[in-house]
C-alpha cells in the first residue's frame, strides 16, 4: 500500500514537472518562430495549435499535483472561524464533495472520450488530431483527482487527534 502511495505521489509530481518543462518548450518555440519569421525563413504553422493543446492538457494533468500542494485557491473564512474539531469535519466534507465531482468528471469524461473514438471525431486546424486523444487528459486527471481527494479525506481523519493545523492547507 505504501509503495502504491509513493508511486502515486511520484506520478502526480511527474505531471507537474512535465507541465513546467512544456512551458519552457513553448517559450523556446515561440522565440524560434519569431526568429524564423523576422529573418524571412518561414514559420512554425503548428505552433499555436500545439501550444493550445499543451496548455490545456498540462493544466488538467497537473491539477492533482497542485491539489496535493494545497495550491488550488479557496476561501478559508469558515475554517478559520470554526473550532478545530468542526473545521476538521468541514474539511472532510469538502474532500467528499471534491471526490464526487471528480467521479462525475471521470465517468462523463470517459464517455466523451469513447464517444469521440466511436465517431472518429477529428479536430482540424493545421493538424488532424483525433479528438479522443485530446479529451483523454480529462478522465485521466479526474481519476487522479478522485484518488487524491480520497487520500486527503483519510489524511485528515488520521490526524484528528493531533493538533491538526487548518492553515497548513490554506489558500496560497
Amino acid at each position: 500500500m505504501t509503495i502504491a502511495l509513493r508511486l502515486f505521489e511520484k506520478l502526480i509530481g511527474f505531471f507537474g514537472i512535465l507541465f513546467g518543462l512544456v512551458i519552457g518548450l513553448i517559450i523556446a518555440l515561440i522565440c524560434i518562430d519569431v526568429a524564423l519569421r523576422d529573418f524571412g525563413l518561414g514559420s512554425l504553422p503548428w505552433l499555436i495549435e500545439l501550444s493550445e493543446y499543451l496548455m490545456y492538457a498540462g493544466t488538467f494533468l497537473a491539477a492533482p499535483w497542485v491539489l496535493r500542494q494545497g495550491n488550488h485557491v479557496r476561501v478559508d473564512m469558515l475554517f478559520v472561524a470554526l473550532p478545530k474539531r468542526l473545521a476538521v469535519r468541514l474539511e472532510q466534507l469538502v474532500d467528499l464533495v471534491g471526490l464526487g465531482i471528480s467521479l462525475v468528471l471521470l465517468y462523463y469524461g470517459s464517455a466523451v472520450v469513447s464517444d469521440a473514438w466511436r465517431n472518429n471525431m477529428v479536430a482540424y486546424k493545421t493538424w488532424y488530431v483525433p479528438e479522443w486523444l485530446l479529451f483523454l487528459a480529462i478522465p485521466v486527471s479526474a481519476l487522479m483527482l478522485a484518488i487524491e481527494f480520497t487520500l486527503r479525506f483519510m489524511r485528515v481523519q488520521s490526524v484528528v487527534r493531533d493538533s491538526y493545523d487548518v492553515t497548513d492547507r490554506a489558500t496560497l
Partner: peptide
C-alpha cells in the same frame, strides 16, 4: 534556477487555468 522557476510557474498556471476551464 531554471527548473524551479518553470515548476513554480506550472503550479500557478495550473491553478489559474483550472479555474478558467
Amino acid at each position: 534556477v531554471l527548473f524551479e522557476s518553470l515548476k513554480s510557474t506550472a503550479a500557478v498556471t495550473t491553478m489559474i487555468f483550472f479555474i478558467i476551464a
